[in-house]
Structures are given as C-alpha cells and as structure tokens.
Design a protein around this nucleic acid. Structure first.
Lengths: 236, 236
DNA sequence: ACCTGAACACCGTTCAAGT
DNA sequence: ACCTGAACACCGTTCAAGT
C-alpha cells in the first residue's frame, strides 16, 4: 500500500492494526504463543504501546473474536433466502466458512465469556442471535419454537465446527518442529501410540477409514437431519 | 485419613497426588490459574519438586485428562447392555456425567492433542474408541457403518457437552469477584450489554425462555434423534 | 532418593518519563 | 499525543546443591 516499510512495521499503531496482527499471530503460532510482547515485536513496537489501544490481553482476544464475526449479519442478509430452512442453511455455511478460515482462533468464539451470560447457548454476538430469532418469527415460528430452534441449531453448529477445527489444527504450538536435528538415534517414534494400538485391533483395522476426513459431507448430513427434525416438531 | 497434616500438605509427593491436586485447582480457579508454582504451593512444596513426577505442564494436563477418563470402559462394560442403541445411550450418559462433574477441565479432553492424530474426530482415549467400534461390530455393523456411526456419535457428544460445560462454567477465572469493594459509584452495570439489547427486541422479549437451561432434555432429544438417524441408515 | 535455591528467559501490566 | 524504560509480580524449566 504505502511506499516502503521494514517488515510489517511502523505505519503508526491503531486498534485495527493490532487486532489484525493478533489474529495473524494466533493462526500462525497458536493462541498461547500470542503474547503482548511478541505482538509488539511483530508490530515493531514495545509491548507497552499496545495498552493505548487495547485495555489488556483479554480485551484484545475479545476484539479478535468480534473481528472474526464482523460483517456476518450483512452477508446473511445479502443472501435473500425464501424459506427458514434455506435461511438456516445459509447461516450455517457462513459460520462454517468463518471457522475454517480461522481454525485456530475460532474456539475463542465459544470460550470467551459472552456479552449476555444468560443467553444459552452463549453465542456472543447478540446481533446474530437477534437476526436468527427475528427471521424465524417472521417465518411464522412462535416464540417457543424460535427459541427451541435457536438452541438446537447453535448446539449443532458450535459442536460440529469446534470438532472440525480441532481436527484441522491438530496441534499448532506443540513442539513446533524440533525436527530431530538429523540425529536418528531414538528408536521409538511414538511408543505409547503403537503400544495402545496393539490392544486395539478394530481401530487398527479401520484405521484408513477412520482417518479419512469427510467433515463436509457429515456437516451437510447432520444439518439436513437437524432441519428435518425441526420441521417435524414445528408442524406438530 | 492420616493423623495430622497442615492444610492439604506434605504426605510425600506422588504423580497421583499431583494430578488430583491439579484437577481440583483447575475446577476451582480455571485452567489458566493452575500453574506449576501455585500447584507447588497447594501441595506444600516448591514447584521444582513436581518435575520428579511430571515432565512439565503439558504432561500434567495430559495426565489430568487421562485421569478424567479413568475407569470409563470398565463402567460401560459393567452395564451389560443388550442393543447397540442402549449401549450408545449408556456411553453417552457416562461421558456426560464425567463432563458435568468436571466442567472446567472437560474441554481439555478435546483441546489436548490426541494419542492418535489420524483419528477423526480425535477422542484421545484409544481404549474407548476400540470399545465402541468392537461393540458395534459385534452387533452386526459393517466396518463402514461402524466408522460412520462412531463419527456421528462423537461429533454429537463432544459438541453437546462442550456447549453444556461452557454454559455451566460461565467464566471461572474471569475477574474472580472484585466485588466493587462496597463503593457503588459506577452507574452502568455493564453498559455494552444493555446498549446491544436495545437493538435486539426479539432477544429481549424471549430473554426468559432463552435463559432457561434445558440441557438435559435437549441432550436426550438430540441423542434419540441421532440414534434414529443411524438406525435408519444402517437398515438402508 | 527426594526436595530446594538460584538462575534464566520469558510473561502481563503500571507508570513516570521522554519526544 | 504517542511511545519507551524501568520496574513489579508473576510464569515454566534446568541444574547444581543440599539433606
């Protein structure tokens, strides 16, 4: 954008720049590795400078989550869906897209304490909750039906996606490639694994199938099944 | 048990005692607050002493997770179920029981890197995975059916339970009661909340219903629906 | 054999001081 | 107005030393 800047540095600080850098760092090195001090280093600044823009690490993580969800409602509204089924499908895919684009940061969405703690499940963006409830009511749901649907839907969504990203990230920030340094004198490559596996013939036999990733298809199947279930209970 | 001991202290260290103390501390103050040093304090010992029994903080957290799942397979086997439906119901309730008894520690089950990384979803206890697969096969499932069932089942289980415990723990280790120290001169009790809520009439209207906790019933409904779905696909 | 002290390289956060 | 230096109270972890 600008003329020249050393690394990713000093164009003057701003809250947005800090939050972006935090998200990048989280996705690259894991949330534990993202410290105020490392973030300062990334931004070419001392850690203390960040406190002008965020009130602390917790606040920064909140901001990262908010940033993740940014523009969600707008994108959903732009879709112009006709049935509530189509609407919920769209919401689900939109959030799944966010989760897959930010697999390491996504769990923060559910682990950070929510804006409205009394909301169960605690999806932290009230704007989104409001949109879902309003849409369902506009499609003829009673309040009770809307609430039940909201709960079942978010449970499914959060559950599936947390699992999916936990698969996708494996373990970022774990060991970070010590690479053995070429020295190959440690015989057992992961002793406990193979020992356990010897006791688990079925796991061993189905290993190939178990390791295949069909998250996409499973997500679609689960979602459709959920919508069918809701459809059934809504029409008594 | 013994004659006298100061606080919860020095009966000589052991791996089990350390792991138990860690779990207690995690449930009481949150996983972030549980440090090697605070744990040493709890056990009446210097932090460095712990390194005789655990190889580090990560190892300790692994051990906590293993401890949580301890005896699971035995309890499931003791149940003597007759159908695969009944069996999976039992497994589900057993794990739900563990999750609710250790709501703060439970998320570690899914966030720690699994023993078999290629296993999707990565339920870290191979013994348990083996038990489920073996039982399903013994009930006449083909390998493919067993794998599909395992995946759908654990997705549902982990998803539901992560959500349920995240509701139950709200935010342990957040703020930890500053209590305002009696000084009542801050007018806004949580300004952002109410501001957001003013924009969210549906959320406001359904607030009572939304805040009610029906996790138990929702869990049962979801589980039954899942078993029905499996039943249907198994019999083509 | 089991634990401790001292040390190292890190944290988050505050605050007076620099420009 | 925006950033830094120094400081404080913490971390995890190692290792030589004490008993």
């Amino acid at each position: 954008m600008s003329t020249d800047e050393p690394r990713s540095a000093r164009r003057r600080l701003s809250r947005d720049r800090i939050v972006d850098a935090a998200l990048t760092s989280i996705e690259e090195h894991g949330v534990d590795q993202m410290s105020m001090r490392s973030l300062g280093r990334d931004l070419g600044v001392e850690a203390m400078a960040l406190y002008r823009y965020v009130s602390g690490r917790e606040d920064l993580l909140e901001a990262v989550v908010a940033n993740l969800l940014n523009g969600f409602v707008e994108r959903v509204e732009a879709a112009e869906t006709t049935s509530w089924q189509e609407y919920l499908q769209h919401v689900a895919h939109e959030i799944r897209h966010i989760a897959l684009a930010n697999p390491t940061a996504f769990p923060l969405v559910v682990s950070r304490h929510p804006a409205a703690p009394w909301l169960r499940p605690p999806l932290r963006d009230i704007e989104m909750v409001e949109h879902v409830l309003a849409t369902l009511c506009a499609r003829g749901f009673t309040d009770d039906q809307a609430v039940d649907t909201y709960k079942a839907f978010t449970s499914f969504l959060v559950g599936s996606l947390l699992l999916e990203v936990s698969i996708k990230t494996e373990n970022i920030a774990a060991v970070e490639e010590p690479m053995n340094e070429g020295s190959a004198d440690i015989p057992e490559q992961d002793s406990s694994d193979d020992a356990d596996l010897a006791q688990a013939p079925h796991v061993l036999r189905m290993r190939d199938r178990l390791s295949q990733d069909h998250s996409e298809a499973e997500f679609e199947t689960g979602l459709e099944s959920l919508l069918n279930r809701i459809e059934h209970t809504v029409s008594h």
